[in-house]
Write a protein that binds this DNA or RNA. Structure first.
Length: 660
RNA sequence: GCCUGGGUAGCUCAGUCGGUAGAGCAACGCAUUCGUAAUGCGUAGGUCAGGAGUUCGAAUCUCCUCCCAGGCUCCA
């Protein structure tokens, strides 16, 4: 028997007997590796450990504590989940069960239309642990399409996948199989076989660091016209420590939840009397919001925007012209009928109003670009299941602007706009960005190919010039124009879609909004829609979560709180607060009715940046005790003048306590 | 809109088998005057989300509605 040679990830080569598997290779390298090995990556393809290696292949052994290893663990855990469910609910149909970020899920249809309850998770968990303890080996088999159909005669979803694969496979189907002419299966006991491309861990005993997290409904193939299946989600890891770390991360994320912080810090609420997705801002949240808006206005003013205002409701005619009623009506609040049959709508967007403002006068090419900005409150009838805190609401205020420019100006305007966006976001402390470019949707784009080509090329070069990573989203643009969106990563690595810059070839045309060009022809302008915060509400939510409620000092509703040690220090405390207030600092005072420790604690829980404690020494020497947020080590004897200077500097530079 | 779970004092929550409402914090009052994360005592606070039903009796069981959470779908 001749030997084969394979290449390892470090570039070295090894000879193995023909027919040797990745497991043999791992054993040849070392006992530890052989014991750890879960699967192999052969010429870039994930395969089972036991599959024979082709000659000349480049081979990497996949071990548990790696992204690929975790993916294999999660996928295998999904199989065990399905096996457990079929044991507990004989006759259950299982549909698809992939590995996902941090975990896995599996979709089921239970006999008699039964549904999973939360309590069922406990039983399923126990059954899964029993299967794992049984140390069942995963074994792969291959069948023809017809054999596959026969094998899964009781499993309609598996048959549907096989049929789809044999005829018109989708990406989703191809994830389950690796050939369109045959099907592969994995059995981890004679009682349970699943259609699957693999690979899987060698045996169920390699699993076990998992937790079933929730049950949910999910439509078959993600289409709401299809029957709804029962989905179980779980998370799975290579070790108990990694599982615990992940659960801890989830707990941390929960502490940052803006809805919780909004309650704790008394910023906003959603009174049920008002309705879902409709927030009210309390004084503290109102202050935070006002500061955000004022800053944004100031920046817009400097950047050449004009400020406009438009009403919250309008006759339906406006949205007939804009076309919203044709394709957005479902997301609009139902019409109000007034004045003998005229219908009015709450506005879901500001752009038609801004276009009318553009049209209100004859425009010359010399006037362009025109940049109209508005904090425009819009109302969208979001489906009841999608509203979520301040991030997905039914009433929101967009920091919306529409720029009308000539085709020649488009490139420069986009460059300016993107730079403006990034500068503004950085001023709020976000600084880890990437861009996503959504290009023309095939078959339904308005505007000429030439316009699209130019716009997409411009957006792309602008994005590249910004020096940020660019992710393409082919076909993801709206039919009326391509867009670029800024994605920001927050302090715990989550990404949020922030600003969008959207080109629009359609609206000026629909409104017949033209300008007079240098050659005296009436010409359609290019319209750029852009929102930087997206919505003020959502942006505040993202900042709250990014900072875990510890907002930079300039955004805090109360920036300092002065506490007298005894009540005969209150007068001095008030004097200190007033001194700072004269400089625009938001300073509060709490009199000495409670012990100092209690008042400190209260202020700490409110996440106030600076607690100033003043006692006998301070009254005498015009000083302060400074207890900064995030510190448990107060600084005594700081002069009022020095503290004021430091604080004003911090506010001006958008810093936080502890930045120095 | 769909699936699963939830809604008890301002907040966080407990409430057993269906027997008639509890705690801590907050609020208010009195006392306490204190140097860096909870001073003591007292008082008040409830249509148990809303409605209907079963029952001698419902926070508890059933149904409907509203609202919230996690998913699915959606996010032009």
């Amino acid at each position: 028997m001749s030997d084969i040679e394979v290449e390892l990830p470090d570039g070295s080569r090894r000879s193995l007997p023909e027919g040797a598997s990745a497991l043999d290779l791992a054993s040849a390298i070392g006992k530890r590796l052989a014991k750890d090995a879960l699967a192999a990556q052969v010429n870039g393809q994930l395969t089972d450990l036991t599959a024979p290696l082709p000659a000349g292949a480049s081979v990497a052994i996949v071990t548990p504590a790696s992204e690929l290893g975790r993916e294999v663990i999660r996928h295998s855990s999904a199989h065990v989940l399905a096996q457990a469910v079929t044991r507990l609910w004989p006759g259950a149909h299982y549909a698809i069960g992939p590995a996902i970020t941090d975990g896995f899920y599996y979709d089921f249809e239970l006999p008699g239309g039964a549904h999973f309850s939360d309590d069922d998770l406990v039983r399923i968990d126990a059954e899964m642990r029993a299967i794992i303890a049984e140390d069942q080996p995963f074994t792969r088999s291959e069948y023809s399409i017809d054999e596959g159909l026969a094998l899964f005669e009781d499993q309609p979803f598996k048959q549907a996948i096989i049929n789809a694969v044999a005829h018109a496979p989708s990406d989703e189907d191809l994830a389950e199989v690796d050939s369109t002419s045959s099907v592969s299966t994995y059995s981890n006991s004679p009682a349970f076989t699943d259609l699957c491309r693999g690979p899987h861990v060698p045996s169920t005993q390699r699993l076990g660091h998992f937790k079933l997290t929730r049950v949910a409904g999910a439509y078959w193939r993600g289409d709401e016209k299809n029957p709804q299946l029962q989905r179980i989600y779980g998370t799975a890891w290579e070790s108990e420590a990694a599982l615990a770390a992940h659960l801890e991360l989830l707990a941390q994320a929960e502490l940052r939840d803006h809805r919780k912080l909004g309650q704790e810090l008394d910023l906003f609420s959603f009174p049920s009397e008002v309705g879902p997705g409709l927030a009210v801002f309390h004084p503290k949240g109102g202050t935070m919001r006002r500061v955000m808006e004022e800053y944004s206005r100031k920046r817009h003013e400097v950047s050449g925007y004009d400020f406009v205002y438009s009403p919250h409701i309008t006759k339906s005619e406006l949205f007939e012209i804009s076309g919203h009623l044709d394709w957005f009506a479902e997301s609009m609040y139902p019409p109000m009928e007034l004045d003998g049959g005229t219908t009015y709508y709450l506005k879901p967007m500001n752009c038609p109003f801004h276009t009318l403002i553009f049209k209100s006068n004859q425009r010359s090419y010399r006037d362009l670009p025109l940049r109209y900005f508005e904090f425009g409150s819009v109302y969208r009838y979001e489906k009841s299941g999608v509203v979520h805190g301040l991030t997905r609401v039914r009433g929101m205020t967009q920091d919306d602007a529409h720029i009308f420019c000539t085709k020649e100006q488009m490139g420069e305007e986009l460059t300016r706009t993107l730079q403006f966006v990034l500068d503004l976001l950085r001023d709020f402390g976000l600084n880890d960005f990437y861009l996503e470019l959504s290009t023309r949707p095939p078959g339904k784009a308005v505007g000429t190919d030439e316009e699209w080509d130019e716009a997409e090329a411009t957006l792309e070069s602008v994005a590249i010039a910004a020096g940020l990573d660019l992710v393409m989203d082919p076909g993801g643009g709206a039919f009326y124009g391509p867009k670029i969106s800024v994605q920001a990563r927050d302090a715990i690595g989550r990404t949020h879609q922030m600003s969008t810059v959207q080109l629009d070839f359609q609206t000026p045309q629909r409104f017949d909004a033209t300008y007079v060009a240098a050659d005296n022809t009436r010409t359609l302008p290019i319209m750029i829609h852009r929102a930087l915060f997206g919505s003020v509400e959502r942006f505040m939510a993202i900042l709250l979560e990014h900072y875990a409620g510890n907002m930079p000092t300039w955004l805090c509703p109360e920036q300092v709180r002065v506490l007298g040690v005894r009540d005969d220090h209150d007068a001095y405390a008030i004097y200190v607060a007033e001194t700072l207030a004269l400089e625009g600092v938001r300073a509060g005072v709490e009199g000495a009715n409670e012990p100092l420790g209690a008042r400190i604690r209260k202020a700490k829980l409110e996440k106030i940046p600076y607690i100033l404690v003043v006692g006998d020494d301070d009254v005498e020497k015009a000083t302060l005790g400074v207890n900064a947020r995030g510190s448990n080590d107060p600084e005594r004897g700081v002069s009022v003048a020095e503290f004021r200077a430091r604080l004003l500097e911090e506010i001006a530079t958008h810093g936080s306590p502890g930045d120095r």
